[in-house]
Amino acid sequence: MKQLAKHIVATAMFGSALVSTSAMAEQKIGVVDVQGVFQAMPQAAEIANNIQIEFKDQIDEVSQLQKDGQFFAERLQRDAATMSEQEKKELQDKIMGVREKLAEKGQPLQQNIQRRQNEERNKMLALIKQAIDTVAAKSDYDLVLSSGAVAYAKEQHDLSDKVLEQVKKAN
């Protein structure tokens, strides 16, 4: 009786393995290097330039503050031996004022730039996702994975070039 039960279970397992293997063989699977497509998109460089232009005045102001702070610090270090205590104190106060302005303007600027970059990156990723969906539908793929999630894939399964072409067509 136990032998019969073991044979039935073994047969059922073997049969399900064959069915699942044949079902998997029928699936068409593709791979896309999303990061590579993202970097190859012509819009990527354009967006970076647009963000730099958008925040140019603020970037220049923060850059000037950094230069001023560095100038005052170098001057204090270089001329400290010949300066009076009053001059040293004034220069140190200037350095502290520049540092406060940098903290006041630099961190919010960096956060705003980061926020804008994320907004634009999300827009581009949505375009890539749309392109992947289009390519997968046209070529009748059942599953498309990110190349970062796959240890190995044959080159014939790589859809990155087709997705990049589709993204370029979309704009």
Results as ranks from 00 to 15, higher is better:
59 I>W: 08
141 Y>V: 05
96 M>Y: 12
50 N>M: 09
147 S>K: 11
137 A>D: 13
55 F>A: 00
51 I>G: 03
78 R>K: 15
137 A>Y: 10
104 E>R: 14
96 M>G: 10
108 P>L: 02
91 L>V: 05
143 L>C: 02
147 S>T: 06
61 E>Q: 10
92 Q>N: 12
103 A>F: 11
116 R>C: 06
120 E>L: 07
96 M>Q: 15
88 K>G: 08
77 Q>C: 01
55 F>T: 03
76 L>Y: 11
109 L>G: 01
65 L>H: 02
136 A>N: 01
125 L>M: 13
129 K>V: 00
104 E>I: 06
103 A>G: 15
66 Q>Y: 06
81 A>L: 08
108 P>M: 01
69 G>Y: 07
58 Q>P: 04
149 A>E: 06
145 L>I: 03
56 K>H: 09
61 E>Y: 11
53 I>V: 13
88 K>L: 05
54 E>C: 04
140 D>I: 05
110 Q>K: 11
64 Q>N: 13
57 D>P: 08
128 I>G: 01
132 I>F: 04
98 V>H: 03
54 E>P: 00
140 D>Y: 08
133 D>C: 10
96 M>E: 15
127 L>N: 11
88 K>N: 04
104 E>A: 12
145 L>F: 08
68 D>W: 06
93 D>A: 15
74 E>V: 02
149 A>P: 00
71 F>S: 14
63 S>T: 10
142 D>S: 03
124 M>Q: 13
143 L>Y: 06
58 Q>N: 13
131 A>D: 01
49 N>V: 10
61 E>S: 10
56 K>I: 02
75 R>I: 04
68 D>Q: 14
130 Q>P: 08
54 E>S: 04
87 E>F: 05
125 L>T: 01
91 L>W: 03
90 E>F: 00
137 A>I: 08
124 M>L: 14
99 R>S: 14
92 Q>S: 12
83 M>H: 04
136 A>M: 03
149 A>H: 05
100 E>R: 14
141 Y>R: 07
86 Q>R: 12
110 Q>F: 07
81 A>Y: 03
118 N>V: 08
124 M>H: 06
83 M>F: 01
74 E>I: 02
134 T>C: 00
139 S>V: 00
64 Q>K: 14
134 T>V: 09
73 A>L: 10
83 M>V: 00
99 R>V: 12
137 A>S: 15
64 Q>V: 07
131 A>G: 06
79 D>G: 05
93 D>R: 09
135 V>H: 07
110 Q>S: 11
70 Q>L: 08
133 D>L: 11
145 L>P: 00
123 K>V: 09
101 K>Y: 05
83 M>N: 02
67 K>T: 12
65 L>T: 02
80 A>D: 13
69 G>P: 11
129 K>Q: 11
93 D>E: 14
84 S>R: 06
95 I>L: 08
